[in-house]
């Protein structure tokens, strides 16, 4: 949660860094799948990262 929210907060500070870490989050997500409710919640948090 801290990691995801840190990347979300980073978007308004430096979008290129946020984008770099968003890709890392996606790689981690594919390698370490979470339980569906947790995954859905985290995906909800990151929604702003993919919208401009």
């Amino acid at each position: 949660m801290i990691l995801v929210q840190s990347v979300v907060a980073m978007k308004e500070v430096d979008s290129s860094i946020a984008s770099e870490y968003r890709q890392r989050l996606e790689r981690i997500r594919s390698q370490y799948p979470l339980q569906p409710p947790v995954d859905r919640a985290l995906m909800g948090m990151t929604a702003s990262l993919t919208s401009d």
């Binding site: 995801v4 929210q5 859905r40 919640a41 909800g44 948090m45």
Partner: peptide, 10 residues
Amino acid sequence: WLPDTLPVNL
């Protein structure tokens, strides 16, 4: 780290 938004706060 816990935004006051759905669904994460659930």
